[in-house]
Design a protein around this nucleic acid. Structure first.
Length: 877
RNA sequence: GGGCGAUUAGCUCAGCUGGUUCAGAGCACCUGCCUUACAAGCAGGGGGUCGUAGGUUCGAAUCCUACAUCGCCCACCA
């Protein structure tokens, strides 16, 4: 059969993915085998595949495929997250484009639109993952708003409420004025911004010309000021205690209070207190029983309570009011100031602290086991450095605001029967709620008397149940008992607190057990210049296009080059190109092997030696690769495979066994090579599933689906005799030296040379034929005096000489010898200096001394040899 | 403001508890080759006083201390 010169990924990828699905290799059901489980970090339902997913899912697939080949019951659970804020924002945007405002729709109407949108766009990303080769058990695809899943979310809320962990309270929350919802602390990103510090003076009430000056970055909140606060120890302001000040522009009288919270050093040492718009002020306000005036609307415009600028946007007002204050003589000065401002992770608008009634989860007790079990490595982090930040967060964990003022998501199962703060019941259904409410009030309420909370739960309040709920673990034991705890979680450090920590918390709370054994943190995929990939920068390549261009295998390999755990990956298309080239290299190894027509002829000595070496080298590499997997060193694992395939297998092994031109292949060698190649394909399969499966089938007739590579047994390391490996390595060193001499002296490869070897005492002469084959050496003379006219070199104490005729230009050879002589002499001096140091000789361990003495003798021998050589050539030195 | 981590070849990174895997890998670069598996390739080669300054030690990329630079996480100083 004719095999094309270049590997064509397109046809083989679709063919083999369909084949794998058809034969249900990815399907998993509980059985007697050891399970190996990964739950996918569910991408947003509205998302499309980006480079981060590519990296993340490639790693997961590599792990799953290897586990499958190790004979484990490999189960990779796919799914998507409803992503309440992100999805709702997209639906709102889409509706707006159609001229429909969310506010014009009822909740049900809006949700209808949302579901239509979800059905249309949802899950695109999972289809894209198939192109990457992801070996998920697709029958298990889960959506966080599936019926059973939703039920588990609501039941968890109810359970935590009953346990006293969930509470409702008025708190200062992070308000997103664009999304019109509260967000959790984790969803706020602090950015350093250049702003201004405004020094504003307030008149003291009842005075003629007495002022107090405060400093603020947010002058628009002056309208909500209800106190001025100074430090009680501040001598400058003691006379003001108990007096009142007048808020500029609106002339409201506010008290001047004293509290040690105020930093005397900062600004003017006077703080304006706006309890409605600042967390600290809120606390101060409560402490000192100060009035609260909320001057902002939910959307960030000024409210009626502000009296001025009503309905105008907060940042526009900031400019206006500073001008107005200035005009009125209140602005003392304005200085540039760099401060941190919180931005919404989702909408990227500045967060507004806002007092509102929200639902919270008490975290302190709940999170204790989750801290402990990570610190003692029951749950292991890779790399472990992330344990530090995890601990830091867990030790200072704060209550989790779980209500969101959105419609898309799991609606909070709270039903109000009155407007009082505690006039509600928590229930899974309307009917149950009604019963509870009747019981609570002792009144014959009807459904119409109850109103369910309008808010939905934070998305992460559902995703934290993911490792349990994907197995329907709250309602059925069968699957969850088998698959849980899962093995490895592969995710980004960015969501360590959002998701990883909370899954661990939920795991211990609801299963009394960790959700996964290992957490592998990937880095962020950045562009070549180190910038985060983003739509707005347009620096993110389309993964689907990349796969078209370089093949899925090429891209997978490209992603894994240079991406150690926890390190950002500087993505460069060149890496995918390298991956594609690697595919092609393997492909051409197949072409070579397939071109042989083996005969029953005698096995050449070089081939026999190379085959033996490969047996041992393979064993060594299998062990090494296993070690890398165990330590989650993915890119090193890849690099080991890459170098083994390219250098050891192709460059040395195939070249050594390859029949000379015009000769045929012997069947003994051919069989051995095929067996070795098959082992290599197995090692490569998790990395490059498509091409390896393709080659696997081209290499031999595999009639039964049971013989597919995807489920082939992982290679077992045989014995590894390092002496054999070293022997071969020495042979390759000799070959390289000879090639080098040929090149430097323009000796064509086709001219056979004779090689004289001396002092190669403990050598395995079995590898001499390999030298002869690869360096075109006609004969190896052992322990025979070499002619004086020869190129020489020394490797590990043995001397090698290649005689040359008179015609060869030796000047380069002489230069090189002199250079080497100089270097070796310098080296000798250094070693001898060390050895003559009494303290070194006394203190260094025996082993080190032996090594140093050997260095000395080797160097002396080498110098003698080179000098002898030069003398023989008639050169003075 | 608190914490964590990094700094090794042009780039991306290995180098575990101080001494033969100590100065490494891949890519890039340079030179010569279209040699019947592969130019998406082959063969060969150059390149780093391991951020700076001290210290411990017979011996430091490796341990200690400062400093410099960069990154990340956490944090309610207006």
């Amino acid at each position: 059969m004719e095999i094309s010169k270049q590997y064509d990924p397109a046809q083989s990828e679709s063919k083999w993915y369909a084949y794998w699905l058809e034969h249900k290799y990815f399907k998993s059901l509980p059985d007697h085998r050891e399970p190996y489980t990964i739950v996918i970090p569910p991408p947003n339902v509205t998302g499309v595949l980006h480079m981060g997913h590519m990296l993340n899912n490639t790693i997961q697939d590599v792990l799953v495929r290897r586990a499958r080949m190790l004979g484990k019951n490999a189960c990779w659970v796919p799914g998507v997250d409803h992503a309440s804020i992100a999805t709702e924002a997209k639906v709102v945007q889409k509706l707006r484009a159609e001229g429909i405002k969310k506010s014009d729709l009822s909740r049900d109407e809006f949700l209808q639109h949302a579901w239509v949108w979800k059905e249309k766009h949802g899950g695109i990303i999972l289809q894209q993952l198939k192109k990457l080769g992801a070996s998920c058990d697709w029958a298990r695809e889960t959506f966080t708003m599936d019926a059973d899943y939703s039920r588990s979310v609501i039941d968890t809320f109810i359970d935590l409420y009953k346990k006293g962990y969930v509470y409702r309270g008025e708190r200062m929350v992070n308000w997103d004025p664009a999304a019109l919802t509260a967000v959790s602390d984790e969803e706020v990103i602090h950015k350093e911004v250049e702003s201004a510090l405004y020094h504003v003076r307030y008149k003291i009430a009842g005075s003629i010309d007495e002022w107090v000056t405060i400093a603020t970055t947010r002058p628009e909140t002056i309208l909500g000021d209800t106190a001025i606060c100074v430090n009680p120890n501040d001598e400058r302001y003691k006379h003001l205690h108990g007096k009142k000040a007048i808020v500029p522009l609106i002339n409201r009288e506010i008290p001047i209070i004293a509290d040690e919270y105020v930093d005397m050093e900062f600004g003017t040492g006077c703080l304006k207190v706006t309890p409605a718009h600042d967390v600290n002020d809120y606390d101060l306000g409560r402490k000192h029983h100060i009035e609260t005036i909320d001057v902002l609307n939910a959307d960030g415009t000024m409210s009626a309570a502000a009296q001025l600028y009503v309905g105008e946007e907060r940042f526009a007002v900031r400019k206006k009011i500073s001008a107005d204050l200035n005009a009125a003589g209140h602005l003392v000065k304005q200085e540039p100031y760099a401060n941190k401002v919180g931005y919404s992770e989702r909408t990227d608008v500045p967060i507004e602290p806002r007092i509102s009634l929200q639902w919270f989860v008490k975290m302190q007790d709940l999170s204790k086991p989750a801290l402990e079990h990570v610190m003692n490595d029951d749950v292991q982090f890779w790399p472990p450095k992330f344990k530090n930040s995890y601990r830091n967060w867990m030790e200072h964990v704060k209550d989790w605001c779980i209500s969101r003022q959105l419609w898309w998501g799991h609606r909070i199962p709270a039903y109000y029967y009155g407007i009082g703060e505690n006039e509600f019941v928590i229930a899974a259904t309307d009917a149950e709620a009604l019963l509870l409410a009747q019981k609570a009030t002792g009144k014959p309420l009807t459904a119409a008397d109850l109103k369910q909370d309008d808010d939905v739960l934070d998305t992460w309040f559902s995703s934290w149940l993911w490792p349990i709920s994907v197995f329907n673990g709250f309602y059925s034991k069968e699957e969850v008992d088998y698959y849980y705890p899962t093995n490895d979680l592969v995710t980004a450090p960015e969501i360590m607190f959002f998701w990883v920590a909370r899954m661990i918390i939920a795991g211990y709370e609801y299963r009394g057990e960790k959700p996964f054994k290992n957490v592998y943190y990937t880095g962020i995929v950045r562009d070549k210049m180190g910038r985060k990939m983003s739509k707005s920068l347009g620096n993110s390549p389309d993964p689907i296009e990349l796969m078209k261009q370089y093949g899925a295998d090429g891209v997978r390999v490209g992603m894994l080059f240079s991406s150690p755990a926890g390190n950002d990956l500087l993505f460069d298309e060149g890496l995918c190109e390298q991956g594609r080239n690697f595919s092609n290299k393997i492909w051409n190894a197949l072409r070579l092997i397939k071109s042989w027509n083996p005969e029953g002829r005698l096995q050449p000595a070089a081939a026999a030696a190379a085959v033996k070496w490969m047996d041992h080298r393979l064993a060594q590499v299998i062990t090494e690769i296993g070690d890398h997997y165990d330590k989650f060193r993915m890119s090193e694992m890849l690099m080991t495979c890459y170098k083994f395939a390219w250098n050891d297998f192709c460059s040395w092994y195939l070249e050594a066994v390859k029949p000379a031109y015009g000769e045929s292949m012997d069947s003994t060698t051919q069989k051995a090579v095929v067996a070795h190649f098959e082992s290599l394909l197995k090692l490569l399969h998790p990395l490059m599933p498509f091409i390896t499966e393709e080659i696997w089938h081209l290499l031999a007739e595999r009639l039964s689906p049971k013989d597919a590579l995807v489920i082939a047994p992982w290679p077992v390391a045989g014995t590894c005799n390092t002496a054999i490996i070293e022997g071969f390595a020495k042979a390759t060193d000799v070959v390289t030296q000879i090639r080098n001499i040929r090149k430097e002296n323009n000796i064509p490869n086709k001219d056979a040379l004779e090689l004289y070897i001396r002092g190669d005492a403990d050598a395995d002469t079995a590898f001499y034929p390999v030298i002869q084959r690869l360096a075109n050496v006609s004969v190896c003379h052992r322990n025979l005096e070499a002619p004086a006219q020869a190129f020489t070199f020394v490797i590990l104490g043995a001397e090698y000489a290649l005689p040359f005729g008179e015609s060869v230009d030796t000047s380069q050879q002489v230069d090189k010898l002199i250079e080497e002589l100089t270097y070796t002499k310098g080296f000798l001096i250094a070693v001898q200096k060390k050895l003559s140091n009494e303290r070194f000789v006394q203190n260094a361990p025996e082993q080190v001394l032996i090594v140093e003495r050997k260095k000395e003798t080797d160097a002396l021998a080498k110098i003698a040899l080179i000098e002898q050589k030069l003398t023989g050539m008639g050169i003075a030195f």
